[in-house]
């Protein structure tokens, strides 16, 4: 029973639900509890690469800080005792509470998101959306084609440099290469659009009609999915209770 194995659609719905709930909580303790609780669950039920986790977290630490001080400086006039003055703005206890709520919310959101992203295989998510979420196969397979495009785009870019070299564009230094990028963007996009068109033809030629279909990859729902979902919901309930 891990978050990796959990049905992606159910995981997605649960995490989204929690985030929504959080948006309506205006005390710092609930987001803090959710943040810590999510970490604990993640340690218990998944195999986290903490280095990646940290890397993804860093930018949001910045955002949390930004949110903190913007709310302090540009915060609305609020009643109550003034604690200190920041850039000419009187900061009350209420201001501080609000600012920490909002920035902790950023952190809690991020922890929840990472719980989802770091344990979900994109392909499996799309398969599950198609099988449980009634997502149109036309869209699902177009997204698969889209995923395939990451390596293709990289390759096309290298190819474009080669083409331009063969047609007499001289790029000697690394800086030349970077300067040349704007000349490549439109051809790169145009090339991708043509590729997309040909892939669509191939799909049709292979007998793809876009009707609901059987797939080799089956993403099932088991009772563990409901167990993990309930755990997350309980976590939220407890956090709300802590906040009161």
């Amino acid at each position: 029973m891990t978050f990796h194995e959990m049905n992606p659609t159910i995981k997605f719905l649960t995490v989204t639900l929690l985030m929504f709930g959080l948006a309506f909580m205006y005390n710092p303790w609930t987001p803090l509890a959710v943040f810590i609780g999510t970490l604990i669950l993640q340690i218990l039920f998944s195999n986290v690469n903490w280095k990646r986790w940290g890397l993804f977290m860093i930018p949001f630490l910045f955002t949390a800080l930004g949110t903190l001080w913007t709310t302090l400086v540009f915060g609305k006039e609020a009643g109550g005792e003034v604690m200190f003055t920041l850039f000419g703005n009187d900061v009350t206890v209420e201001n501080v509470m609000l600012a920490s709520t909002l920035s902790l919310r950023v952190l809690a959101f991020t922890a929840l998101s990472l719980l989802f992203t770091l344990t979900t295989d994109p392909k499996r998510f799309v398969y599950s959306l198609m099988q449980q979420g009634k997502l149109s196969p036309k869209i699902a397979y177009s997204v698969f084609v889209g995923f395939r495009f990451f390596p293709i785009l990289k390759h096309e870019l290298m190819q474009l440099y080669e083409t331009h070299a063969l047609r007499g564009v001289r790029l000697e230094t690394r800086l030349d290469h970077i300067r040349h990028v704007p000349n490549l963007i439109i051809p790169l996009l145009a090339g991708s659009i043509r590729q997309a068109e040909r892939i669509a033809f191939s799909m049709e030629a292979r007998g793809f009609t876009g009707e609901p279909r059987a797939t080799y990859e089956v993403v099932a729902i088991t009772r563990y999915d409901f167990l993990l979902a309930s755990l997350l919901i309980v976590l939220f309930g407890v956090s709300v209770w802590i906040g009161i």
């Binding site: 397979y141 698969f144 084609v145 395939r148 590729q195 040909r198 892939i199 033809f201 191939s202 799909m203 030629a205 292979r206 793809f208």
Partner: peptide, 13 residues
């Protein structure tokens, strides 16, 4: 079933 002329552009996956 069709095999297209251009080997480069007839695959989906």
């Amino acid at each position: 079933g069709t095999v297209f002329q251009d080997p480069d552009s007839q695959f989906v996956m």
